[in-house]
């Protein structure tokens, strides 16, 4: 018997997201999915489930929630203020949310997108094999106060686990590779582009993030009329006024503005999680370095389950301390507590 989560109060831009909907570029649909896919992997590692499990993505700030049965949850992505019935709990960690308790998630402190994961994932009806909302395409919708979401069957597992904080939050350096139109920009323009410190514009969303700066715009010299061409997420297009625009997971599939380069996939979450006005600088890397970074990133994601640690709680702040069984179950001080979960 699976339960439901009720949104008592919805934040301004909450949607259901999984890893997206690849395979539809030819018919005009970008893959979409979580703005910060790394956060989905972290949530899945904390709950011991498939990274493609649907989670609730919260842009800017969260909301308040209630479940109708005891439910394992995990919180990842941008750190947000959070409590259960008024008691603060840790971000980047898994918890047990008791039936009827009120989970309250506030504003983001160090990033743009926070995620609420549930054991078994949110079991909303898939559209074309994915549960991701894709608002630009008209799939799904912003979640509203009062809405009830079905929970998938949870195979169960531990809670009170945490992962170390990832360094993508507040990072400034974003690696890019040359793409098909990079050489339409002359050497001096490309050099100036990489030497400029940009500020993420406040209007950034799942489609794209404009990069502000004070100096003159970047142009291809005006000699080039570019025929509308394929777009991939991470492409940095230079719009009519010379401002760079990083295209994100929900961007259009084709476009006529020239692209100066492409953010490598493992660094795109840095742009997604940059707060308004956060400083960002782009650095060209060669293909070898980019591929090595991607390989490392994939290995890091695969190793996330091994990096989980028990959440340390301050006994003085545990209200029902005497209700906890504190001594049994200790078998060995050196055993790997996650050994049995390896598959």
């Amino acid at each position: 018997m699976s339960g439901t989560l009720t949104i008592l109060q919805a934040g301004p831009a909450m949607t259901i997201q999984d890893l997206g909907r690849p395979g539809y570029r030819a018919v005009g649909l970008t893959h979409g999915g979580a703005a910060d896919p790394t956060a989905l992997h972290e949530g899945a590692a904390l709950l011991g489930q498939d990274p493609n499990s649907a989670a609730l993505e919260m842009a800017g700030s969260g909301g308040s929630f209630e479940v109708d049965q005891d439910t394992r949850i995990a919180l990842t992505g941008a750190q947000m203020q959070v409590n259960i019935d008024g008691e603060a709990i840790a971000w980047n960690a898994s918890h047990l949310l008791p039936a009827g308790a009120k989970l309250t998630i506030g504003g983001a402190r160090d990033g743009a997108y926070g995620y609420l994961h549930v054991g078994g994932g949110f079991d909303v009806v898939p559209v074309m094999e994915s549960r991701s909302s894709h608002l630009a395409a008209g799939i799904g919708a912003l979640l509203q106060s009062g809405e009830t979401l079905p929970l998938g069957a949870d195979k169960g597992g531990e809670t009170n686990l945490t992962l170390p904080r990832d360094n993508r939050f507040g990072a400034e350096r974003v690696r890019i590779v040359a793409s098909m139109q990079t050489d339409a920009f002359d050497e001096a323009t490309r050099q100036r582009f990489t030497e400029t410190t940009f500020r993420r514009d406040a209007r950034a969303n799942r489609m794209g993030a404009r990069m502000d700066h004070d100096a003159e715009g970047f142009t291809t010299g005006g000699q080039l009329t570019i025929v509308s061409e394929v777009i991939t997420p991470g492409d940095i297009q230079i719009t009519g006024d010379g401002a760079p625009f990083v295209l994100m997971c929900e961007c259009q599939t084709t476009g006529g503005y020239p692209r100066i380069g492409t953010v490598i996939p493992c660094d795109l979450p840095i742009v997604a999680q940059a707060q308004p006005s956060a400083a960002l600088q782009f650095e060209f890397v060669d293909l070898g370095e980019a591929l090595a970074a991607e390989t490392r990133h994939r290995a890091d994601l695969a190793a996330l389950p091994k990096r989980r640690q028990p959440l340390l709680r301050d006994p003085a702040r545990i209200r029902d301390l005497l209700g906890y069984q504190l001594i049994s179950g200790v078998v060995s001080a050196t055993a790997d507590p996650f050994e049995k979960e390896k598959t």
Binding site: V177, A178, S179, M180, T225, V227, E229, V230, T232, G234, D235, G261, T262, I264, P265, L287, A290, L291, E294
Partner: peptide
């Protein structure tokens, strides 16, 4: 034939439509 970031290759047949 040109590369498209880390996504693949693009074969373009003409400069204009």
């Amino acid at each position: 034939i040109r590369s498209v970031g880390l996504s693949g290759l693009l074969v373009t047949f003409a400069e204009k439509m």
